[in-house]
Design a protein around this nucleic acid. Sequence first.
RNA 1: GGCCCCUUCGUCUAGUGGUUAGGACACUGGCCUCUCACGCCGGUAACACGAGUUCGAAUCUCGUAGGGGUCACCA
Length: 463
Amino acid sequence: MVITRFAPSPTGYLHIGGLRTALYSYLWAKKNDGKFLLRIEDTDLKRNSKEAADAIEEAFKWVGLKQDGDIYYQSDRMDIYKSYIQKLLDEDKAYYCYMSKDELDELRATQMKNKQRPRYDRRYRNFTGSVPDVKPVVRIKTPVNEIIKFDDGIKGMISVNTDEVMDDFIIARSDGSPTYNFVVAIDDHEMGVTEVIRGDDHLSNTPKQIIVYRALGFDLPKFYHVPMILNPNGKKLSKRDGAMDVMEYKKEGYLPEALLNFLVRLGWSHKDQEIFSFKEMLELFNPKDINKSASAYNAEKLLWLNSNFIKNSSYERLIKELKFFDLNLENIEKKEILIDALRERAKTLKEFAEKSRLILNEPQDYDQKAVKKFLKAEAIEIAKEFLNYLTVYKEDLNNSNDYEVCISKFLEEKNLKLKNIAQIIRISIVGSAVSPSIYDIMAIVGQNELIKRIKKLIKFMEV
RNA sequence: GGCCCCUUCGUCUAGUGGUUAGGACACUGGCCUCUCACGCCGGUAACACGAGUUCGAAUCUCGUAGGGGUCACCA
C-alpha cells in the first residue's frame, strides 16, 4: 500500500508551496488506494502547533483535501523517539557527547578561519566515561568515508560521500529532545510511509535520514524531491510576493479547484493539458512526471484558470460561493440572467460580486468620462422619449429578448440607431460605460427600476 | 567556500537521436459587437554557452557560465 504524508512545521498557516506538495502526496496516495497522513513537526517550536494544525485543516477543507486518520503531533511522540535513541545508544551506534555549545562554536570559528568546513571533530565518539555537571547531547555514529546513494524519483540518482556532507550529527539535544533529521526518519518508518514527497530543500537532509534508517535497520521509502516555487522574478518566493497563505486565495475570490489546477501544473504536466478536474488529476498524476527545475509563480495564469472555472460553474455553486462576498442572489428574480452575463466577465468571485452590485444597486454617481463622452446635448431628449415609450409600453418586459424587441421598436419609430441610446441606458443603470449587454441588465433590474434609474439620470443631466 | 541540484519562447510546459521545436498564459493584429468581456482566426517569441560522440543532437558525454538548495543542540 502506498502511504504518503505531509509534514509541515507549525508556522500558523498553510502556504501555497506546502499545499502543492500536500496535493502531490494526496493525489499519489489516493490514486493508488493508499493513505495520506498529516504530521505536525513540532519537536522544537511546539508553542502553537494546535493552531497551525487548525489552520492547515481549514485550508485542506477549503480545497477538498483530507488526511486519513488523526493528525500526528511529534510533540506527542517523544517516548517513541527516546526509546529509539536508547536503542542506538545500547547498540553503540550513538554516543553521548559532552562538548559544550561554546566549545563547539569555538571549534567552528577556528575551522571557518582556516577555510575548513565546520564540523564536529568526533572527539567523544569513543569516549565511554562521563563528565560531571555537563548534560550531554547524543550523536549518531555516521559511517566514515562512505558513499550514500539513493534513487530520487524526480532528481534521479543522488550520491554523496558521508565525510563531505555530515559529521556525527546530534540526534538528541542536551535536554533530551530529539532533533529533526532523526524524528523524521523514525516517524516515516513508524507511520509506514512508503513514498516521501517533499520540497527539494530537504534533498541534502536525505542522506542524514538514510543514516538513521540504516542504523535502525529500517527499509527506505521512495523519495521524491519536488523543486520549489519561485516568485515571478525567478527568486525565492517570500511574503513580499503577495499571497502565501492558501486562505488568502479564498478571500481574493479564487475557486479552490482553480488554485489546485494552478498548483498541480506548476512543475508537473500531462502532455498539453491545461485544465484538470480533481478527478482527472487523480487519474493522471504521477510524481515521476514532475519536472526537475524550479518554476516561477505566474499570477496571470491563475487568474485565467479561475475565470475558466467560474465560467463553467453552475448557478447553485456560484450563488453559494458569492455569499462569502456578501452577495445573496437567492432572492433576485433574474439571477440566472445576471450570472450568465457576469460569468464570462469576472476573473474572480470578488470581482463577480462587485460587478453584480453595480447592476443591482442604483448608481450613486456617474462616471465622469462616460458622461462627457456619451451624454451629449441630444441625450436628454432621447432619454426622455425612451422613458415615455417605456412607460406606456404594452408588451411584456420579462427577459432580455423582450427588451431587445422593445428597444428595436423604439429605434424604428424614432428613426434612431442603437448606438444613439445604448450608452445612455447603460449609464443610467450602472453609472458607467462598461457593463454586460444592455438588454441583460435591463431585464435584471426590471421595468420599474429601469424607469426609476432613467429618471434619475435625466434629473442628473438637467442640472 | 565545500557538497548537491537545476538550465526549451517573458512565464508554465511538450519533446527522450531525424519535428517547419508543439501547446497554454501574457503580449499583439483581425473578426464578432450596444460598451466591456467571452469566443473565433492570425502574429511576435525559446533549446544558456563551448567542445565532443554520431551521417544526424534540444535530446547522449565532458567542460564553462548562470541560478538554486544545503552545510545548527531550526524544521
